[in-house]
């Protein structure tokens, strides 16, 4: 084993020769710069390829972006109109929500008489139902909408149907 170690010592000395193999002078002065340049080029080509992909899939979007680039004032106008649209949608949603809540509260059978339809006649919306006397029952449940109220033996019992309250509200 000692003989082997001695032999390997000589070999290790010979392998030191590899340490004396050096690249051309000044090689490392540019190495890191080249690496960083290649990274930058890679990032640029990646963003370019993303733009090309967008161009292929949604050219209208790219043309809008280009218009915005040339006319920065349009961005403000576009953003303002988007905000106004958003506010309008929120206001409209709140109003319709209030209306539907009122209808739900009204349609619940609270009167001790048991005649729900009769108790609803206090509001103008349901008054229309009451006045029409067509057998349609107001409901906010879309699943049960326009379902005939069948009797025990399959008889429809006239033209009595469920109908969403909202539909009635927009009707008049």
């Amino acid at each position: 084993m000692n003989q082997n170690e001695q032999n390997f010592d000589a070999l290790k000395k010979l392998l030191q020769l590899k340490q004396h193999e050096v690249p051309p002078p000044g090689y490392f002065n540019h190495f890191s710069g080249q690496v960083v340049s290649r990274i930058r080029a890679g990032e640029a080509s990646y963003s370019q390829s993303m733009t090309e992909k967008l161009q292929a899939e949604a050219p209208w979007l790219v043309s809008i972006f280009r218009i915005f680039e040339t006319r920065p004032g349009l961005i403000g106008t576009f953003a303002t109109s988007l905000c106004l649209l958003l506010v309008g949608v929120v206001v409209f949603a709140e109003r319709s929500e209030h209306a539907s809540k009122n209808l739900i509260a009204i349609s619940e059978p609270t009167a001790p008489t048991g005649n729900a339809v009769a108790s609803l006649s206090a509001t103008p919306l349901v008054a229309a139902i009451d006045n029409s006397n067509s057998g349609i029952v107001a409901s906010t449940n879309p699943v049960t909408s326009l379902q005939p109220t069948a009797t025990l033996f399959g008889q429809s019992g006239g033209s009595t149907l469920f109908q969403p309250a909202g539909f009635m509200a927009t009707g008049h």
């Binding site: 000589a10 000395k13 010979l14 030191q16 020769l17 004396h20 193999e21 050096v22 690249p23 051309p24």
Partner: peptide
């Protein structure tokens, strides 16, 4: 495509002796 040996190599007695 080997790099050149540097100038110190020939002065390294261990290597010359090998």
């Amino acid at each position: 495509s080997l790099n050149d040996l540097d100038f110190n190599t020939e002065n390294n007695p261990d290597l010359v002796a090998l």
